[in-house]
Simulated scan of single mutants.
Amino acid sequence: MKASDIIPFYGGTYPDLFEIERRCMDRKGNVIDFLDQNLPNGLALDIGAGNGHTAERLLNDNRQIVAMEPDETMIDPEKPLIWSRGTAQSIPFHTNTFKSAYATWAFFFDGMPDVDQGLAEVARVVEPGGQIIIVDNYGYDEFCALSSRPIASDVNYWSARGFNHTVIDTVFAFDSVEEARKLLSFYFGAAGEKVEQMIFEYKVVAYTKTNQK
């Protein structure tokens, strides 16, 4: 695992902010529902699992999750998950180990280095016919509009790599305006400091692909 393969993430340094993000992002649970409905039974790989928030919610009697996370400060051994350290560019598992793999706002940011290397690794460890799902920002919503720079993914980028896409309507819902300002000012600076609302329209895109060898 190379340091250059790891995207710096704030969760380990600011756990209070990460807790707000995890609780308030997709407050309706629509992204979790989509993943639950589209991930098959069997062993699944969560790429860039963070503290296991998503993986824990996708566990069931017929599905096990390997939570792969490069930042050891994010790993929560109290969660009932199989933990592994690793990056998408060099996944520490044998070929055809998994029925599916998914990433939620993790490695796969458009324009980041070695995206195709990561996708090749995912295709290697997921068995033929298995599912690959990438979740990211869709844009065209109140949340992304707060950013002064583009933070939405490029549908054409993923379509060119054989992915279909589904737009999931959800919300960023905070418990108070003060809480919204705390997280959104960290994300967006002055724009976040000025917010006056607790609920923000949020559109998420799920890119899905049946793995082909």
Rank of each mutant, 00 (worst) to 15 (best):
T97S: 15
R149H: 12
R124V: 05
S90C: 11
K182N: 05
G50E: 09
Q197D: 13
F200I: 10
A103R: 01
A145P: 05
R85S: 04
A145F: 04
L59R: 07
F107L: 00
E196Q: 15
I65V: 14
F107W: 02
G42D: 08
E72M: 05
A88V: 00
A44S: 15
S153N: 15
D110M: 01
P113M: 01
Q117T: 05
A191P: 11
G29K: 14
I75T: 01
V171R: 12
E121G: 00
I7H: 01
Y138E: 08
I133R: 02
V204G: 03
N156G: 10
N62A: 09
Q37F: 02
S159R: 12
L119C: 02
Y102E: 04
A101H: 03
I134L: 15
D46S: 05
T97G: 04
N96M: 02
G42E: 10
S176N: 11
V205C: 12
L58C: 12
Y140H: 10
K2D: 08
L58N: 10
E196D: 14
P40H: 05
V115I: 15
D61H: 11
D36Q: 10
V122D: 02
D61T: 12
F172T: 02
F163N: 07
V205Q: 12
P92Q: 02
F9S: 03
E78S: 07
F34I: 08
R124S: 05
E201C: 06
V167R: 08
Y187P: 10
T166R: 02
E56V: 10
F186H: 14
M198L: 11
T166P: 00
N51I: 03
A145R: 10
L43A: 13
G42H: 07
A88H: 00
R63F: 12
Y140V: 03
G111V: 02
K79Q: 10
D169F: 09
P77Q: 04
N30M: 09
S84C: 04
D16A: 10
I20P: 07
A160H: 09
I168K: 08
Y157Q: 09
G129N: 07
T54F: 15
F34G: 12
R22W: 01
Q64W: 08
I65Y: 05
T170S: 13
Q197Y: 10
M112C: 03
T54P: 02
R57M: 15
K28R: 15
T87Y: 01
D71E: 11
G86K: 02
I82M: 09
F18E: 12
T170V: 09
A67V: 03
T13C: 01
T104L: 03
T166E: 08
E19T: 11
I20S: 01
I7Y: 04
R85W: 00
Y10K: 03
F172L: 11
I6S: 00
V204S: 05
N30R: 13
A191S: 14
Y207F: 15
S176I: 10
N137C: 11
F34R: 13
K182E: 13
Q89Y: 00
F109A: 08
D16S: 13
R63T: 13
V155K: 12
G118D: 00
K28E: 15
L39A: 09
A173S: 14
S147Q: 03
L45Y: 06
